[in-house]
Design a protein around this nucleic acid. Structure first.
Lengths: 242, 242
DNA sequence: CCCCAATGTTTACGACGTAAACATCGGACC
DNA sequence: GGTCCGATGTTTACGTCGTAAACATTGGGG
């Protein structure tokens, strides 16, 4: 091979990568992870990539399209059963466990982006977050029907499964954001519409909360996820066997 | 009584109500219901109230505070067991059913606001959306402990209950938004980064989706909610009895 | 060699949230 | 009854946002 293949001058010194759609999206995700959703701005993302804001418009059709692409990118990283990893004989329970943990690891890896995945309107009304891509839904339904579910059962499982994932993971990333977030706000401030100190509400007025406070502040997100997943599988098992 | 008590001139002719925090918040909710979250602007809300944007700042500490107040207002409308409506003897199942439907009616009444309730960071990390007010949590925990739950069981029930409500209701309002929303976007547009027509992805490439499409597009949100709620109660029952 | 398509920049505009100074006005108090 | 004041709404202004449009640059193919 010819030696002309060496690094070109700007490849050596350039602190900025060549821009394309994938790079823009990837860097946007990294930025949200690092500084939060509200910090993602066309201008700031451009700056992060060493480029003016308008340069991004060559690769992305505006901010909305960028957010859409971010969501798509994350959802496409969900590992649906590869087919050769699990034999159908492994059972649908293992299959669903695998999928659940795949989605959960996505959420935990990008807690600040997950609310976007959860709340943006999907392309079709029957595409339910967080399993909101055709590829993933196809994999889900196919995986179940190949393991003995009827079409109706698979679709019903899709519905309860998405509800389960959405509820648990949204709450999990919320607590994650709370413990990691920049700083705890003082929650009070001299201002216009603040309550007069006489009628301030406080935890003191709620005896049951006060009593259970130590329990409430324990973090059980992980076990909770596992046990609720188990419960869901049990429930599906019951529905299947009748 | 003296006749000076009659309507003052501006009360007769004024199309705008007297402003205060409650009115501002109430009108903001109405506006979101009518035109969506992104249509809520300080300027537009002011216009709707017949007032300049800056007038709102007398009653609300900026946009963030307004959104917070909207969420608080909705959450405070959740009817927790009034205590005289249910006797403890009615059982915790009826109590939880009551609460679940109370929260659900809130979500259905304000589908465009509910995502706000679901995703905004609560005041404390253990305050889980959508049951994110001290009053509601106190009512929840007290209601259960007065019906035989231990503190630990009540707190665990709080966790699974919030996950359940969040997942189901967020998905329900999403479909509601999809069927009600202004207009279905064309989803494609001549533009920069559109796929070349050769490698367009389409539902046609996903046989299982294609086959189950009629099932997928059926709307079962109501029965799904009821049946999942039943399943959750059964599960709690099991945990209780052991 | 020249030209053009792709890529990034400059400039500009309107909408947004909000700080600050100003205007208005109805009741409390002497 | 006049005078002041606090509450409420308005005006003006600034910085930031998303983005349209025109322009500059540049590297590879005829």
């Amino acid at each position: 091979m010819p030696p002309t293949d060496e690094l070109s001058p700007q490849e050596r010194a350039a602190p900025r990568r060549a821009l394309d759609r994938a790079v823009v999206v990837e860097e946007a995700i990294a930025m949200i992870d690092a500084e939060g959703l509200e910090a993602l701005t066309m201008r700031s993302l451009g700056a992060r990539l060493g480029v003016e804001a308008m340069a991004l418009y060559r690769h992305v059709n505006g901010r909305e399209d960028l957010l859409e692409a971010i969501v798509d990118s994350l959802v496409d990283s969900i590992a649906v059963d590869p087919g050769d990893l699990f034999e159908p004989a492994d059972g649908w329970q293992a299959f669903l466990q695998w999928m659940a943990h795949s989605v959960r690891s996505l959420a935990v890896a990008h807690p600040a982006v997950f609310p976007l995945v959860a709340t943006r309107h999907p392309a079709a009304p029957w595409l339910r977050p967080p399993l909101r891509s055709l590829r993933v839904v196809e994999g889900f339904l196919d995986g179940l029907t190949r393991r003995g579910f009827t079409d109706g059962q698979a679709v019903e499982a899709y519905r309860v499964f998405t509800s389960f994932l959405l509820g648990h993971l949204l709450l999990e990333v919320a607590t994650l954001g709370a413990t990691t977030s920049p700083v705890e706000e003082p929650l009070d401030e001299g201002g216009a519409a603040v309550r007069p100190p006489g009628e301030e509400v406080s935890v003191e007025d709620f005896p049951t909360i006060l009593r259970t406070a130590p329990l409430l502040s324990e973090d059980h997100t992980v076990e909770e996820f596992e046990r609720s997943l188990e419960a869901l599988l049990d429930r599906l098992d019951l529905v299947l066997s009748q």
